[in-house]
């Protein structure tokens, strides 16, 4: 569980931590969009500089981001290889059966690789510097307009925040149940695929049972504390938009302008 960096929050404090989570959330998606605008070495280099600058400002160790790439390693390798070997070209460097390696292919592969790095870095930056609850608040705030079409935004947000709240508890529970079954002679890494899958039944069933019992207890506790149906509630946590958020938007406009400029430069 320790290996998974994406989706984990790292307590800290810096400009990036203090930005309004809604803004961080939207910028992340915006950035993922503009990554696809990059079309030459200069524009990719510029985006990389931007991401590294953001990492620097966040005061989070760069190592965390590199570790964040690890779970995606095989996917990246596969996609990059696919681009490198299957890009058709009239001027191949190397050719064997249906595999073709060309300068064009290598360049495209390098671009694809850059896209992966940029997207993974920026989303890791979001989750490392934003608590899950801030993210769920942001989603609630961003989806608010959907209330007009009777979408239960507040309820969904509460569900999301409760789900997030119980993830660590369920991880503890899973570890405990796994230990208990290992002590009863279950070997999780042994035998063929079917046997390995079967070994998870003694974990999944107790986990379901305890999830249901937690859900039941929690529902009773919530009702006893006066939770009705999500309407008429006030909110304790509020998101604060400040000047630095305005400046960040100005900065992002500049970044976009420079990117468009570099894009047209051949």
């Amino acid at each position: 569980m320790d290996k998974l960096i994406i989706g984990r929050y790292l307590p800290g404090d810096s400009l990036i931590y203090r930005l309004d989570p809604r803004l961080k959330f939207l910028i992340t998606f915006y950035f993922i969009g503009i990554v696809f605008l990059a079309n030459n070495v200069a524009s990719y280099a510029f985006l990389l500089v931007f991401v590294l600058f953001a990492v620097y400002v966040s005061k989070v160790n760069l190592l965390f981001f590199i570790k964040g790439l690890r779970p995606m390693f095989w996917l990246i390798l596969f996609t990059v290889a696919l681009q490198a070997f299957f890009t058709p070209s009239n001027d191949p460097i190397w050719h064997w059966a249906f595999l073709t390696l060309s300068k064009d292919g290598l360049v495209i592969a390098a671009y694809i690789f850059m896209r992966f790095v940029l997207i993974i870095f920026i989303s890791t930056l979001l989750t490392l510097t934003t608590t899950p609850i801030e993210i769920s608040d942001s989603i609630e705030s961003i989806l608010k307009p959907l209330k007009v079409v009777k979408f239960p935004v507040t309820q969904v947000a509460l569900m999301l925040s409760i789900a997030l709240r119980f993830v660590p508890l369920l991880i503890d529970e899973t570890t405990k149940i796994m230990d208990a079954q290992r002590a009863r002679g279950v070997d999780f890494g042994e035998g063929g695929l079917i046997k390995r899958i079967k070994a998870f039944v003694p974990i999944l069933i107790p986990l379901f049972v305890s999830s249901f019992s937690i859900a039941y207890d929690l529902a009773i506790a919530m009702e006893s504390r006066g939770y009705k149906d999500g309407e008429g509630r006030s909110k304790y946590r509020v998101l604060n938009w400040s000047k630095r958020d305005n400046w960040t938007i100005v900065f992002m406009v500049l970044v976009t302008a420079i990117l468009l400029l570099l894009r047209s430069y051949r």
Partner: peptide
């Protein structure tokens, strides 16, 4: 653990 609703 089963009655803690809030994230903090």
């Amino acid at each position: 653990d089963h009655q803690f609703v809030g994230a903090t």
